[in-house]
């Protein structure tokens, strides 16, 4: 695939609010990207020129924000709407090996869709097997977080990531990774064995640590994980907010590699 053929959709609905910077991250790397409203995929009230299909794209992103006001649970309404109108298309998209990224609210959406942890390769969208619960602090946690990259090469979004520890900021109230009671150890074992753990919260010395380094109380300090195939990644911290490194006046931020990696992967298809 050629770089000029790549098309990346960032899917928005009412209440998403990180689509602009996510689109810009891809555009800054010279790739076509656009924010697309979910309605553009199914509504017949949309002008012909604005109608879209998932097959128009090589990669889709569910951005951060407060989709549908976070009513019911964060991501629940967005995911219910996807299930009702795009479920089969999304399943085919993931089964074809195309990458899907969920950042923050996007991760909550992928969890609600059952796309993550995504143990079953044949059912990339299914019933919920994890939850992103309310932070242990019961607060909205908004600040830099340090993440240890632990993926051994499966995740298509971090293949090019050389740094062991990166700084992506977090900004969420519901980000605590919870697995079904009694199955926690089994899930973590499977995630490790399958190389599905991508990022874990650490302290400044690179050690797994509790609050405030782990901002939400996530089990096993999990900040981001991918499906068994490695083409669906969900993470609570925001790589698009550190595309540039504002703090050290260095041009390249830690988040940039996430976008570079997936472009590299798409070019290899």
């Amino acid at each position: 695939m050629q770089k000029e053929d790549l098309k990346i959709a960032v899917i928005r609905i009412e209440g998403t609010n990180c689509e602009e910077e996510t689109v810009m991250a891809f555009r800054n790397l010279g790739v076509f990207s656009e924010a697309v409203h979910l309605k553009q995929f199914y509504s017949d009230m949309i002008r012909d020129s604005e109608q879209r299909s998932l097959t128009d794209y090589n990669c889709i992103v569910f951005p951060g924000g407060f989709s549908a006001g976070d009513y019911v649970r964060a991501g629940a309404v967005f995911s219910a709407r996807i299930k009702s109108v795009l479920r089969d298309d999304l399943r085919d998209f993931i089964n074809s090996g195309y990458p899907v990224l969920g950042i923050c609210n996007g991760f909550q959406i992928l969890a609600e869709l059952g796309a993550l942890p995504g143990f079953d390769e044949d059912k990339p969208v299914g019933k919920q097997e994890m939850a992103l619960g309310i932070n242990d602090s019961n607060r909205f946690e908004c600040r830099p977080s340090l993440l240890k990259h632990e993926n051994r090469g499966k995740c298509v979004f971090t293949k090019a990531l050389e740094k062991e520890i990166v700084m992506f900021p977090v900004a969420h109230a519901e980000g605590k990774v919870i697995f079904p009671a009694g199955k926690e150890e089994d899930y973590i074992d499977r995630l490790r064995k399958n190389d599905q753990i991508v990022f874990r919260y650490v302290d400044a010395g690179g050690n797994y640590a509790g609050y405030p380094w782990n901002p939400n109380g996530s089990i096993y300090n999990i900040a981001g994980l991918c499906n068994v195939r490695g083409n669906v990644l969900g993470l609570m911290p925001h790589p698009e907010r550190v595309f540039f490194d504002y703090y050290r006046k260095n041009e390249i931020g830690d988040g940039r590699t996430i976008f570079e990696s997936v472009i590299e992967y798409l070019l290899s298809l």
Binding site: A76, V77, A80, K83, Q128, A131, I178, F179
Partner: peptide
Amino acid sequence: EKLLANPVI
């Protein structure tokens, strides 16, 4: 089952 509750928690 489809929307109001997340059966995991």
